[in-house]
Design a protein around this nucleic acid. Sequence first.
RNA 1: GGUUCCGUAGCUCAACUGGAUAGAGCAAUUGCCUUCUAAGCAAUAGGUUAUGCGUUCGAGUCGCAUCGGAAUCACCA
Length: 556
Amino acid sequence: MVFPFLKISKTSPENTAKQIGDKLLEICPLIERYNVIKGFLNLTVKDAEWTGFVEQEKDNTLFGHMAAPENAQPVLIEFSSPNTNKPLHLGHVRNNLLGDSVSRILAAAGNQVIKVNLVNDRGIHICKSMIAWKKYGNGETPESTGMKGDHLVGKYYVEFDKHYKEEVDELKKKGLGEEEATKKAPILLEAQAMLRKWEEGDEETRKLWGMMNGWVYNGFESTYQRMGIAFDKTYYESNTYLLGKEIVKEGLDKKVFYYHTDGSVRIDLRTDGLDEKVLLRSDGTSVYMTQDLGTALTRYREFHPKQMIYVVGNEQNYHFDVLKLILGKRLGYEWGKTIYHLSYGMVELPSGKMKSREGTVVDADDLMEKMVEMAAENSAQLGKTSFSEEEARQLAECVGIGALKYFILKVDPKKNMLFNPDESIDLNGNTAPFIQYTHARIRSLIAKGKERLGNRFLQHNFDGLMDQMEKEIIRQLYEYPSNVAQAAETFSPALIANYTYELAKTYNRFYQECPILKAAETDAPRCAFRLHISQFTADVIRDAMGLLGIDVPDKM
RNA sequence: GGUUCCGUAGCUCAACUGGAUAGAGCAAUUGCCUUCUAAGCAAUAGGUUAUGCGUUCGAGUCGCAUCGGAAUCACCA
């Protein structure tokens, strides 16, 4: 595209393109020829450059990856961050998958990555589950009911809400207004009393709290495990919620914060287009922001990261704008400016937003189980019978979970996305199984090819063997490293997903149009060349899917 | 109401950061398995990129306005 040069060349686009093309042909050895169409200069790279690239990189197991420099500062990434009063749902799934995949992508781009989780294990929400369990639970445990711990605790969260609503209705019948009734329902008062007892360190309350949280952690652990995610460090709010007061004091000293007439500490952000924000309650206790200021400082001191990433939904955009503004611009911390809010869109249902209290959530465990079942059924329907029971089980897990992950990760993180529970997630087309299938087919092809070719497989002279289809695949393989780099820059697994899909699609066309093994006897070098390209493609597919946290089978 | 984000095929999503004729999948119709794995390939059909004006060689992409949707604006987290 030569338009920008017209001011310099002072001639027509065609002439300008021709002049540039001639010069490049003269000085650049990569270029074989060029042509000009309507102000676009198309350069053709020599075949030998492409085949040379294949020879050089095909066995490089770290193709597309950058090595992490010694002593580099790490990147810290926080994700998941669940509450302990209910099981994980589809919204958390998006958060977890994004956080996990971005971690892998950043590592591939040459960063040392530290994954952290901040569990919200204290507060009114867990007290609601606790009080409901105490009143109506009859001593149920995960063992006695056979329920997963997080689901059991979630059941009592719903139970709380049921009784709470009944009590509010009762009070309204007695003539109380809506607002008063919602504040004075006895069960709510009990939950609030329980929170106060917790904060006072009441032994019995702490014991119950510890027990129920323990159930939840066991449940979360199995969910995380099935999802294939893990953390380097887990923080608990019960340990961090008092942090931040140090920063408040510092802000007061620096006169960045001030006491409001009601005794609360605030900051005025109106000159930056935001509002006045409370940082410490008038009774001296912390709010959410106080705590986040504190944990940020703690983490900085602990790891000295070059960047702190928070994977949190876009409903908290305002909160993170404020957090970054306070630490960076107002308090003047350089590290405060490295805070990056990886803000992702909500997962919506056809009926709108998910509401845990209204039971319109899609449960993470149920969804994973359903996907795996579907994969198994599909496999059976397709007549895949050459698997042992154990192999079939593993394959269904791989395909089902993969389909779910891909479905979520292929969408641009910033955008809201829609999930329709009535329409199951596809297993054909632009999906993980499509890509996994392409991979499995290549592996099988290579095994057979090596057998037939024997030593001739190692033939490394690819000169003159390349046709249009091969060139197209090689060109896409060549672009893998820049896609990884761009995905890391933009924190977008979607770029990797789309890249991998395009690669698989191109390969499948090649596979369909060009016989590979059939050339084994008549044209062994060509067969070997095609097999090497196939193997390179399979390796890149496996690596790219790995960046999404998706396994690929050798056989399916 | 203030601020921020979003409107692309019937549906779900792309479009290399301003470039060539806006692409895939699903759903629909039609071809291709005596086997390199048909979870595949090929083909048909589907669009005034919400609307209008502007910026320039060139706009889905940038600016302004209008319409429609979402989030947020707590001494909750």
